[in-house]
């Protein structure tokens, strides 16, 4: 079953289309990373999936229901972490979580465990006012995890988290996904997502500019590989021996060349034959950042059908 199904979804504010004919379906237990810069429609898409706003056109279905018209029981299965999450400053972390747990009809005993899990147990009885950005984010994560939701929507979840906590955050996510939770998260810190996402959606001006797994997107974008050779003192000689390869940059000590993804092995074999003149080699595959720049800002837009 698809946990989330979105069909020709459009949301207009006045004449401005915040979201324009977006289509996709997300199977249960998947993790989707929504990428896009501000105003690309990520938050609008999340609000539609939460039922906070209604579509101008098209349909959104979450767990088989229309989120804007669904019964309250549906919302108990959702966890949401808004961008720049805010709480009442005067309440303590523990009181905040217990208040929200009551609203979600969850066991109050679960709160202490959750605070422990996100690393806030030591500050649970301090007022939220005294919390750092990262601590608020952790509290936000704790409330999103209340009641083991089946759908987890996280808007910029890792901002303000230190690297250790980020690791823990992704560990928590993969644990939840093993239990069948579907996760949608948006982010602009792309590198951290690379190893952890199977599905990426790149949004641009309210449209889905690209959708697919990382290898699929790499292929669709056909971005070249960059290879940097360290050739102390022998750069020109090496450059001459490279023959037909596309040389991007040469200086005294290194040669940089680009080649299409599919020629990678041929080129590497050729480079291996260059002998001692090449002391080191760096291989740079197109990263999520490159893909994001390509699909999110790039002049020639390539549609990848979902």
């Amino acid at each position: 079953m698809n946990a989330i199904a979105i069909d020709r979804l459009t949301k207009r504010y006045g004449t401005q289309a915040a979201l324009d004919e977006v289509n996709f379906a997300l199977p249960e237990g998947a993790l989707l990373a929504l990428l896009g810069h501000n105003g690309a429609g990520k938050t609008t898409l999340m609000k539609l999936m939460l039922g906070l706003i209604r579509p101008s056109q098209g349909r959104v279905e979450v767990l088989g229901c229309d989120p804007a018209g669904a019964a309250l029981a549906f919302r108990r299965q959702l966890g949401f972490l808004p961008e720049n999450v805010a709480f009442h400053d005067e309440m303590t972390g523990r009181a905040t979580l217990r208040f929200l747990a009551r609203l979600k009809h969850e066991d109050l005993h679960a709160c202490d465990g959750l605070l422990e899990r996100v690393g806030l147990a030591h500050a649970a009885d301090r007022r939220v006012k005294t919390y750092s950005k990262g601590m608020r984010q952790r509290l936000g994560l704790a409330q999103a995890l209340l009641g083991n939701p089946r759908i987890l929507l996280l808007d910029e979840p890792t901002t303000g988290l230190d690297p250790v906590l980020r690791q823990e955050f992704f560990a928590i996510l993969s644990e939840l996904r093993q239990g069948g939770t579907t996760v949608v998260l948006s982010s602009h810190i792309l590198t951290e997502l690379e190893a952890r996402t199977e599905l990426v959606a790149i949004m641009r001006q309210g449209r889905l500019a690209a959708w697919g797994s990382l290898p699929e997107l790499r292929k669709a974008a056909s971005l070249p590989i960059r290879i940097r050779l360290s050739t102390p003192g022998a750069a020109r000689g090496v450059a001459e021996r490279l023959g037909g390869l596309d040389i991007a940059h040469v200086n005294d000590n290194s040669v940089e060349l680009v080649c299409p993804l599919e020629d990678k092995m041929t080129v590497l074999r050729h480079l291996a034959g260059l002998g001692g003149a090449v002391t080191d080699m760096d291989l740079h595959l197109p990263s999520l950042d490159d893909l994001y720049v390509h699909f999110g800002h790039g002049a020639d837009r390539k549609e990848v059908s979902p």
Partner: peptide, 14 residues
């Protein structure tokens, strides 16, 4: 304005 309403409305309350 504080941003607490958005979160509250995603909870199972009318």
């Amino acid at each position: 304005e504080r941003g607490t309403m958005l979160l509250l409305l995603t909870y199972p309350i009318t």
